[in-house]
Design a protein around this nucleic acid. Structure first.
Length: 488
RNA sequence: GCGGGUGUAGCUUAGUGGUAAAGCUUCAGCCUUCCAAGCUGAUCAUGCGGGUUCGAUUCCCGCCACCCGCUCCA
């Protein structure tokens, strides 16, 4: 069957049906920014809720959180973002390949982490011996360009007295910063997790592929705190849980896989990391990351303990982060303010952290692409979105077979009644077949039709999106029927 | 940022140095008793800004945006 094979087809579908629009389109658009239309916002909201339900509501060991996007600058000093979230990039004059300066080596290149900007600048002084990984030419590089990877903004209305802040580049740090608050207020015990969904901002060097890599994006992250030594089993646990979530919500297993990070690919704080990848149809049909599950060890909480010890330095140095370095870690750091006291073992430790970090926009796109289908029906092409019921923007559409003989009144009443608990949509325009197809394109799983028989025996037909089969049920059974079908 | 490509109604396409055509969609009406039927009518476009020209959607320049690479990662 013909499917979406080009990104252009997906973009077109998204716009045509009101899923996703280019941001500020009437002004020519704004690079890398997108808006969710009427159907898109419902879909995305459902993706969020499905995630939240799965990791918070259905579990006893995860609680939720919603942190501010603006946080104390020291958060980013401790996390490492302030020092390291800047790259110097240079371009080979011969082949135009673009490479991060810290990735350039005299000989073979090996993967490295982000490095402090100052270090990179020193490195950049001497590129004459460096080898272009693209064409192998030596020392043919242009002036290195600095990239600020975090968005900066100002807090304070008085123009002469403002404070520069960053928009968070990840939601994770808000969770670490609230670790103690959650411990003190919710009676949770390790192992437990804190989940959060929210916007993050990164000045990606290059954006990519529609909403796949954007500078403003939405993350769904869990920081799961566990006892050191149990981290590997929890890593496996989350790896499995998160993979299953995509499958359970309709992603074709053929299009989903794990990709383990190579040891030299791991971030400095991570002990292990695996990506959940989806086979997007764009480009050459590449596998692209939807979610990363990482074992972050005790790195973050230990870093924040160092940061807390350094706060006075920040004040004493005119609140200038570039002038300070974090204090060394205390000898007994494992008993520090962000440690956990294990009642069973009667000992304190800094928990290890397993972090499943998903991209809401990315998975929304994956669910959309994966649900898209075309099939031949009586010589006509039927376009439909086979969304999982939990994700479908509209759950039920209600129609009168024709708009006379009192059918619209009955149908309207049914729809109004359903609205209280189910997202539904009423339509009486045009021929019935057309209305069915319209709902197919929006991914609505069920259509209820009031016909001539309804006024005689109080029954309606329920039409299934995927099979197009119809079933006749009693009006007073509709709610129960839908609850059952929609698994509500 | 560099290289390559693209930009005409909501969508898909046509076309031209003389003021833009069609299909689908949408809207109104008629007709319709179960899968995009039919009839009538209507709305809607040359990404933005300059230049050349009597006249630019078309030619030139700049900008913006998107796509494909280089990169990166949720």
């Amino acid at each position: 069957m013909a499917k979406l094979t080009k990104l252009d087809d997906i973009v077109s579908l998204c716009k045509r049906r009101g899923f996703i629009f280019q941001s500020s389109e009437i002004y020519g658009g704004l690079a890398s920014c997108y808006d969710y239309g009427p159907l898109g916002v419902e879909l995305k909201r459902n993706v969020r809720e499905a995630w939240w339900k799965s990791v918070v509501k259905m579990r006893d060991d995860v609680v939720g959180l919603d942190c501010s996007i603006l946080m104390h600058p020291m958060v980013w000093k401790s996390s490492g973002h302030a020092d390291k979230f800047a790259d110097l990039v240079t371009v080979c004059k011969k082949c135009n390949a673009r490479t991060r300066v810290d990735h350039l080596k005299d000989h073979a290149e090996e993967h490295t982490e982000h490095v402090p900007i100052e270090t990179a600048q020193v490195d950049a002084q001497n590129l004459s011996k460096k080898v272009c990984p693209g064409c192998g030419k030596i020392g043919q590089f242009g002036e290195p360009m600095a990239f600020k990877l975090m968005f900066e903004t100002q807090m304070g209305a008085n123009a002469d007295d403002t404070m520069s802040l960053w928009l968070r580049p990840e939601t994770a740090q808000g969770i670490f910063a609230n670790f103690k608050n959650v411990l003190d207020s919710t009676r949770v015990k390790v192992p437990f997790g804190i989940a959060q969904i929210g916007k993050s901002f990164r000045n990606e060097v290059t954006t990519k592929a529609f909403i796949f890599r954007t500078r403003e994006f939405e993350q769904a992250e869990i920081e799961f705190f566990c006892e050191p030594g149990t981290d590997e089993q929890w890593y496996e646990h989350w790896k499995e849980k998160r993979f299953a979530w995509y499958i359970d919500h309709g992603i074709d297993p053929e299009n989903l896989r794990f990709r383990d990070h190579d040891p030299d690919e791991l971030a400095h704080y991570a002990k292990a990391c695996v990506d959940v990848e989806y086979k997007f149809p764009f480009g050459s049909g590449d596998w692209q990351e939807l979610e990363g599950v990482a074992n972050r060890t005790d790195f973050d909480l230990r870093q924040h303990q160092r940061g807390m010890r350094s706060i006075n330095d920040w004040y004493e140095n005119d609140r200038d982060l570039t002038k300070i370095t974090l204090k060394e870690e205390a000898e007994d750091y494992h008993k520090g303010p962000l440690s956990y006291f294990d009642e069973q073992k009667k000992e304190r430790y800094i928990p290890y952290v397993i972090e499943p970090s998903a991209g809401i926009d990315r998975s929304t796109l994956a669910f959309l692409v994966d649900a898209y289908d075309e099939e031949e029906v009586k010589g006509e092409t039927r376009n439909l979105l086979r969304f999982h019921p939990a994700l479908a923007p509209t759950k039920v559409a209600v129609f009168p077979l024709v708009k006379k003989h009192g059918m619209p009144e009955i149908a309207t009443k049914i729809c109004d009644d359903l609205k209280k608990s189910i997202t539904c949509f009423y339509d009486q325009k045009g021929a019935i077949g057309r209305r069915y197809r319209r709902q197919d394109e929006a991914g609505t799983p069920y259509c209820i039709t009031v016909d001539g028989q309804t006024s005689e025996d109080n029954t309606v037909t329920v039409r299934d999106r995927d099979s197009m089969d119809q079933e006749r049920i009693a009006v007073d059974q509709i709610k129960a029927y839908m609850r059952d079908k929609l698994d509500m």
